[in-house]
Write a protein that binds this DNA or RNA. Structure first.
Lengths: 342, 342
DNA sequence: CTGTTAGCGCTTTCAA
DNA sequence: TTGAAAGCGCTAACAG
């Protein structure tokens, strides 16, 4: 049997449709007894308001799109959890859009979100050099909050990780421990976040009077496997090209997933973390604290970021002015056991 | 300026609204030149069809709800990735609903999904004893596919992990390696999945002529921290209550996240994995292969499951009969390095 | 092949 | 305090 509509409710309650609507929405001008009647009718019919119909007339969907590059990296589900939690508290529903770090797919997904008339978007990470252009044209008229997409940070409310400073801090930490031959494992070359972290790394090197050496940087793909491969390449390089005069003693790795993979690579090569090679990661994903040895990393309050983003979005949607629409977060060094003084 | 509607497009193209609609939907009976005109008009106006309006009339939203208990466990994002991938290929959009393993919240989230008129639901894991009742009444009329929610497996198309057999296999593997004092770390006591895995564990014990000992089972919460705590409890128990006559030599742990935490617990107690205690997990999450030592576990093809679920859902939505609507998957033993013969 | 008409389920004036 | 009517943007007969 078909789902009951408000018409059915109205009929059963013996009132007009408009009264039924007002009653169900608890408008103050409806007589209490009428509300009662209507509610009973609704209950009896197991009535569920049709959000689609409502959206059509109110011209707001209370849908928000959440655009993430990759669900396999725990970083993004953590953000998703934060967004979802406050969204549902605020009466929004979230649509998931996974871009798989693929520009074409991203465009496609956005198109869908637009057609669904989402009220707003939270755009998390995964930005890529040049991803900017086409978005601008199509995205006006839509509230959007970006997380760690530096290319939008000046046009949209944003939450940004200070990747440059974070990377700098991480690298400097290694330097302070006495390391001089410090490698960097980044994400995909065209990833903006990865580029920023590379920048911070170079900056710290420079400030410490250490040379930047190309042979010490390798790009991975943010996955554990990628980290493993990158570390293996690095270790081979050291072995074959440079000899033992300047062996790698530490590495700053652009995210924890790769760092954990890289640690494995170190062991596979018969070396020890941190005995032979110190490692510092980025993100502080939930297993970081319990891997062996526990991973020293730059922590980012992921879930809070998601919640914060959704809150900002909701505020703009309410027409409120954001007093602070350009949040920049400093990652925090969590010293665990993968770094050791040289 | 307001978004263009199909009316605007029709006017600009000099045709009626219905013709515009037909043209945009590429109906075969529209003259090619007309389609051309209409498309140009649409492009010029940057027209985007309003999916909300369409849904209202077609009475299908092409929305599917994805209900998961917890985004922090990599297991679920992996499923989400699978669902999302095939959903978007099939023209569906997925709404995320995170229940946080909380029955009240689950009910609330489902209510929202129903109001949004999702065409179907994929319900992944997190089932809890007694979660069944209220769902039945409210869920008819909705296509739904369940993943690892045994309580629905006989009323809805389902993909189920054979948890009992998987757990049995895992435990038996330990037994074959010569272990006789094998602990079990489960999820929350009322988690059905955890109960099944416990059942498999007991079954294997029994078949092997080993006694079931309550002091060897502890319940965690599926998180790394929970695994750590559970292992610590276990180790303390051994220390204090039982003395050294029957020290724990192995543990089967209900998911990888906890297993990784538990490994850490073992080390904290000054013992070694697998030297002192062998460990086997469940799920094969993506870091399992690279932790130290690489985790032996029962693999479940998570992402494929998500995709499969969405495919099944789409089929039922199309009115196709599912030839195989009760898929049962056998977890596969992945031997890595956390288990050793005694 | 194209246009006219009706209506999806709801909210929202506006009158009564 | 309630009801009648209009209309959100679209698709779906149906007639021409």
């Amino acid at each position: 049997m078909k789902a009951a509509t408000i018409k059915d409710v109205a009929r059963l309650a013996g009132v007009s449709v408009s009264t039924a609507s007002a009653a169900l929405n608890d408008k103050p001008f409806v007589r209490t007894s009428t509300k009662q009647k209507v509610r009973e009718a609704a209950a009896k019919l197991n009535y569920r308001p049709n959000a689609i119909a409502r959206s059509l007339v109110t011209n707001e969907s209370r849908l928000v799109g959440l655009v993430v590059p990759d669900m396999a990296d725990p970083y993004f589900p953590a953000i998703a959890a934060g967004v979802d939690e406050v969204a549902s508290r605020l009466g929004y529903t979230v649509i998931l859009a996974n871009t798989l770090r693929n520009a074409k797919r991203e465009a496609e997904q956005i198109r869908v979100l637009l057609e669904r008339r989402v009220d707003g978007l939270v755009f998390a990470g995964g930005s890529t050099v040049g991803a900017r252009g086409w978005l601008d044209s199509t995205l006006d008229n839509l509230e959007i909050v970006v997380i760690d997409r530096p290319e939008f940070s000046f046009t949209s409310p944003s939450i940004t990780i200070d990747n440059v400073r974070g990377a700098e801090k991480a690298t400097r930490y290694l330097v302070q421990l006495g390391h001089r031959d410090i490698a960097f494992i980044g994400g995909p070359v065209n990833s903006l976040v990865s580029q920023e972290r590379l920048r911070g790394y170079r900056f710290a090197l420079q400030e410490s009077g250490l040379p930047y050496r190309e042979e010490l940087v390798v790009h991975g793909d943010f996955t554990p496997r990628g980290g493993l491969q990158a570390m293996t390449i690095l270790l081979n390089r050291m072995e074959t090209r440079l000899g033992i005069d300047q062996p790698l003693t530490a590495a700053f790795i652009a995210n924890d997933q790769m760092a954990i993979g890289a640690m494995h690579g170190v062991r596979l090569a018969g070396k020890k973390v941190p005995g032979d090679i110190s490692i510092i990661g980025f993100d502080d994903i939930n297993v970081a604290a319990v891997v062996e040895p526990p991973l020293t990393t730059m922590a980012v309050p992921t879930k809070e970021i998601g919640g914060m983003a959704m809150n900002m979005l909701a505020k703009s949607l309410n027409g409120e002015k954001l007093e602070d629409n350009r949040v920049v977060l400093q990652p925090q060094l969590i010293e665990r056991e993968t770094c050791i003084a040289r």
